[in-house]
Amino acid sequence: MTFAKTRLVSPSARGSIMTDNGPAHDTALSMLPVNPRDFLILFSLVDGERHGYGVLKHVSEESEGRVRLDPANLYRSLKRLMKDGLVAETEKRPASDLDEKRRRYYGLTELGTQVVAAEATRLSKLADAARSRNLVTEPAIVHESEKSR
């Protein structure tokens, strides 16, 4: 799994952004579990920055249409995630010819990346446990385990 290179550090990020993995990782672990909607929003930003509509579409697709955020609630969540230091508005945007509307873009912070990865790991472990009890009927999506840094 690769992450977009540009990550902005939110000024209001919870605690300071650590350069080493230790304490920041702990912070990330302390924020689990992430509520499913927030996870879907964070997950949609893993491949790179998106604007609000892009997040909304991605969330709807990933949840197979089960989670349909309305725009105001999407921005409420984004606002909260920014306050928690998981998401930041980005300065860099895709090439201007693809971006006629000049919207605001959102990307994951370091912490956000760690939280989404930690949550994915947690879910994956949960899924493994479920699978070992034959609860999973469909071929499960294979999660890549957390990337070591």
Partner: peptide, 14 residues
């Protein structure tokens, strides 16, 4: 003030 404009645009797209 912070979000109405963006949310409305997203809603327009939807």
């Amino acid at each position: 003030a912070a979000c109405a404009q963006d949310a409305a645009e997203v809603f327009g797209d939807l």
